[in-house]
Design a protein around this nucleic acid. Sequence first.
DNA 1: CTGGATGCAAACAATTTGCAAATTC
DNA 2: GAATTTGCAAATTGTTTGCATCCAG
Lengths: 152, 152
Amino acid sequence: MDAKASVLAKNFGAAGYRMTKARKKILAVFSEAFRHMSVDDIYLAVKKKGEHVGITTIYRAVDSLVKAGILRQVSLIKGRVFYEVIDKRVSGHHHHLICRKCQKIIDYSDFVGKEIPHIKRLENIASKTREFLIDDYQISFTGLCKLCKGGG
Amino acid sequence: MDAKASVLAKNFGAAGYRMTKARKKILAVFSEAFRHMSVDDIYLAVKKKGEHVGITTIYRAVDSLVKAGILRQVSLIKGRVFYEVIDKRVSGHHHHLICRKCQKIIDYSDFVGKEIPHIKRLENIASKTREFLIDDYQISFTGLCKLCKGGG
DNA sequence: CTGGATGCAAACAATTTGCAAATTC
DNA sequence: GAATTTGCAAATTGTTTGCATCCAG
C-alpha cells in the first residue's frame, strides 16, 4: 500500500467504514487506471488481475466510497454511472466534453485550473445561501464532436 | 403552439426529425414544467392531461430531442436520467448542488450568469483543441447538505 | 466478540428491441 | 408513396435485496 493508498484508507476509516480486502482491491484498480470506470469495468479489472470481488460487493463498495468522499460519481450519459477518484490536486482534476449525438466522452485536463478562482466564488455563494458543504465540482460541456458536427 | 414552440419545431425539422403528435405532447409538458423530468415524469404528466403517449415512444422521443439539441440530459444521481429544455437565456439556465450522502438535488439559478464570461473562455479553448462544437454546459457541485453535514 | 461486509441467488426496475400498423412529409 | 414513428409485448440489462457466512476493529 503506497502513501496515497494509506491516506485513503485512513480517511475511509475515519468516516466510519472498514477497509476490507474487497475495498482495497477496488482502490488498487483505481490507482492503476486513469479514466472513470463503471461498476462492470471495475469488476473486470479486478478479474483481470486474477482476483475476485463479487459484483454486488462492488456496487456496495463504490457507494460507501462515494459517501466517504473518496470517489465521485460521474453520470455522463444515459444513466450510465461511472466512478473516479477525487483528486484534490489541480493536475488531477479533469472535466468532460460529451457529444450529444454519438455519446462519446472526451476527458480534458489540459486547461483545468483556469476556472478555479471563479469556481471558488460560486462555491462561496452556494455554501452560504444553501448551507451546503461543497467539496467537489464538475463542469461538463455538451455539443457535437468532430465527426458528428460534420453532417454525420 | 406558441412562438417558442414553433421555433423548437422548426429547429427539430431542420435536424431531420418529424414533429409528430407524440413529440408535441411531450414538448407541451416541458413548457408547462419547470424542473428536470424523468421519462416516467413525462409519461405521467401527459397522462394527467388526459392524453396518452406510450412509454417506449417517450424513451425514443427524448433521445431524438437530445440529439437535436432541444433537450439536455441531466444525469445527476445514480443513473437516474432527467431531461430539461435547453434554454439559452441566462434566466433559464440553472445548475445543481448534489448531496453525496442523501443524494438530494438542489437547483440553483440565483447567481447563474456570473460564470458565463469565464465559461466562454474555457469553451473556446475546448472547441479549438478538440474540434468540438460546444452548445451547452453544466456545472454541478457535490458535497454535504445542511442535514448530512451535521453528523447526520 | 460484535456489527459491518461479503457474495450468492432471486427479485426488481429501467430500458431496449422486434414488428405490424399508423402517420408525417 | 416512402420513410419515420408509434406502441405493444417480450427480451434484456443493470441494480437491489434477503440471508447465511465471514472478517475487521
